[in-house]
Amino acid sequence: MIDKIQGSLAAALAGVQDGSTVMVGGFGDAGLPNELVDALIVQGARDLVVVNNNAGQGESGVAALLASGHVRKIICSFPRNVDSQVFDELYRSGKLELELVPQGTLVERIRAAGAGIGAFYTPTAFGTELAKGKETRRINGRDYVLEHPLYADYALIKAEAADRWGNLVYRKTARNFGPVMATAAKCAIAQVHRTVALGELDPEAIVTPGIFVARVVKVPRVPAAAIAAGRQ
């Protein structure tokens, strides 16, 4: 019997090696797999490359992972935030490498990796600092920049519900990077609020089919008030 549902966060993260590239879903607090990120700090893998849209807010989640010193490099589109003090200090002191990627290019590079695309041309960033040194090409009168896929060893994502085959549905804007990152990682790990029996998820509504998901772990929903308190 195939059962991707793990008994604990530690089991879900078993085997993460030093030097791994780890994608982390989420945009703002929505869709951030905070419990998996906390467990990754405990798991202890070092020299990590982290891919996330942001670079942590406050002192928990991705910010805590950066503060742990386990991360060598972050690939993201928008590290700066009013409460991105952990990133800001590590970046300014040269302890953390940053690869800044436009948001749409970031997600398309992830999509390309998951879809088996060798590289692609995008009009985004043509003529800007972020295209410096990159191959460009004019196609049908428009200028494009060559971009390459972004692969990961692990993707940590948050979904609403899963079954034991790893089929996933999401909730509202917590979906964001999750479905795309799941396709690009050798091992996608989803934390979910509910696990359901096979057949309970409407097949017309499954967003991430289980083929993209290696492991699932159930995590209780945190009340909104607790999230707000944690950010202060």
Binding site: G28, V107, V180, A224
Partner: peptide, 29 residues
């Protein structure tokens, strides 16, 4: 009525109008 799973691009809480839709980032871009 704040829902922490329903944010805008500025990471502020918003609402969805009847007929509105959610989609992932690759579709959005």
């Amino acid at each position: 009525d704040i829902d922490t799973d329903l944010l805008n691009a500025g990471k502020q809480p918003v609402t969805l109008l009847p007929g509105g839709a959610f989609f992932h980032h690759a579709d959005s871009f």
